[in-house]
Each structure stands twice: as C-alpha cells, then as structure tokens.
Simulated scan of single mutants.
Amino acid sequence: MIEMMNLTKRYGNGLTALRNISVQIDQGEFVYLVGPSGAGKSTFSKLIYREEKATSGYIQVGPFNVIKMSNRDVPYLRRHVGVIYQDFKLLPKLTVFENVAYAMEVVGRRPKEIQKRVNEVLDLVNLKHKMRTFPDELSGGEQQRVSIARAIVNTPSVVIADEPTGNLDPETSLEIMRILDTINTQGTTVLMATHNRQIVDTIRHRVIEIENGEIVRDQKEGDYEYVH
C-alpha cells in the first residue's frame, strides 16, 4: 500500500531530514510514527502526499509512483490520502457542514452525493447536531473531529494524522483515537505521528520510530519507548 525504498530527503539548506529509509505499510494497518522533535516524522508524512519531494529513492502509494508523478497528477494522489492536522486548518467563515463539503466540492462531486456523504461522516464523528456551527464556536476536540470528517469524506485509502491529539486533553484524545480506530477497522490505513506516550502504550498498534532521519525501530504492537 505504502512502500518506500532507499528514500532520502535533503533540504536546500543542507539538512538531511531522512536517510535511506525503506519500509512497507500494508493496506488496513494502523501505524504510530514516533521519535523526538526534528527526527524526520513530518518529512516522512509529507513525502507520502507529495507536500515534499524526495531527493532520491522510491515511494509508491497505492497505484501512484510518487517520485515519478507529474505535478498535475498530485491532486489525484491526494484523493487517496486524507490528512488530519494538529492545528485543524478549518476555514473560519464556513460552517462545520461547509468545511467538510468543501473537500468534496473541489474534486467535483455532485450536490446530492455531497449531502449524503457529509451527513454520514458527521454522524461518524458525532457532530451532526453541530453542522450549522462555525469553527470558533467549537471546542478543540470538536474542531479536530471536523478535521477528521473532512479528511475521510472522500473515502481515502490512507489517512495521515499529524499529532492529532497534540492540543487536546486526555479524555478528548481518547475520543479522537476511538474515531481513528473505527476508521481503521473499516479498512483505511492510518499513519499517526505522535508524542502521546499514554495513547501509544494503551491502544497498541505497530510502532515505527525515527531518530536522526533513520528508522531505528519497527515493532508490531510496540510501546512508545523501547526498553532494550
């Protein structure tokens, strides 16, 4: 589903963010991406949806050869990859319904289809009753649930969550995790970059640990911190 081989990313300032990464993530897996700040987790995620371009190596996401694809094909890749951001990135002048619907409008879905699907995903994240509310009237947890709904509304095969519980209290974080687990059980691959030790240790999934741009651990149902 996601395959990286000998993947390296160097930035223009000479910084090497990732070095010779090789990893495979199968369809339907839930994977935590852990490691210290600056280890390369964000770069790893951004290469998958071509927010960043690799310097060398190979990356395949579903049917897409991400290294060789042209810029005009990037929007098609991004229909397959939903992204959940730590800071939500909601459009402040649009309601909850409109924020989620917008993701379908930009790919040309029909109004009737949009209405049906947006209602479905708002139901999944338990926000149907807030569909006419604006982002600044929502709590942080509610805004993150809108962000999740927007990320999954086009039924992507992969969801990338960048610190989705980073700004949330423990109870709200668990609620977000329950939603991500539900999405995963429906067959979507979930890759979640996180510093949340409690969640990783409690809700067990595969753990890939990155340090200094290299994978130092890849463990099935791992802890946040590996004890040698």
Results as ranks from 00 to 15, higher is better:
V227E: 09
G57K: 11
E163F: 02
M131V: 02
R197C: 01
G57W: 11
L15E: 09
L174R: 13
N13Q: 06
N184I: 07
K93Y: 14
Q186S: 15
D162M: 11
R217I: 02
Y85P: 05
H80K: 15
L122D: 10
F97Y: 15
K41L: 05
M69C: 09
V81M: 09
T8M: 03
Q186N: 12
D87Q: 13
Y11F: 15
N65S: 05
G108L: 13
H205G: 12
I67F: 06
T165Q: 05
S45G: 04
N167P: 10
E3K: 12
L124M: 15
Q198A: 15
I183T: 08
D26F: 13
E120W: 01
Q219Y: 07
G14A: 03
S139K: 13
T182W: 01
R132T: 10
D162S: 07
N184K: 09
E225A: 13
V34D: 02
K130C: 11
V125R: 04
Y226C: 09
T165C: 07
E98T: 05
E120D: 15
V146N: 07
N99K: 09
Q186Y: 11
E225C: 12
L180T: 03
R10Y: 10
V153M: 05
I210W: 06
G140T: 15
E120P: 10
R197T: 14
T8V: 00
I183L: 04
V118K: 06
V200E: 03
T189C: 09
L191Y: 03
V100R: 06
L90Y: 03
A17L: 01
E98Y: 04
M1W: 02
D169L: 11
G12V: 04
M1H: 03
A54K: 07
R50Y: 00
S139Q: 14
R72E: 15
A17E: 11
V100N: 00
V31T: 10
R109Q: 12
T182Q: 13
P135A: 01
Y102F: 15
A39L: 14
I183Y: 03
M104K: 06
D223P: 12
G57V: 00
I210Q: 12
S45F: 13
Q144R: 08
N6Y: 06
P135I: 03
I2W: 08
I84L: 07
L168N: 00
L168K: 02
H129Q: 12
A161R: 00
V207A: 10
L94C: 07
E3I: 13
M5R: 14
D123M: 11
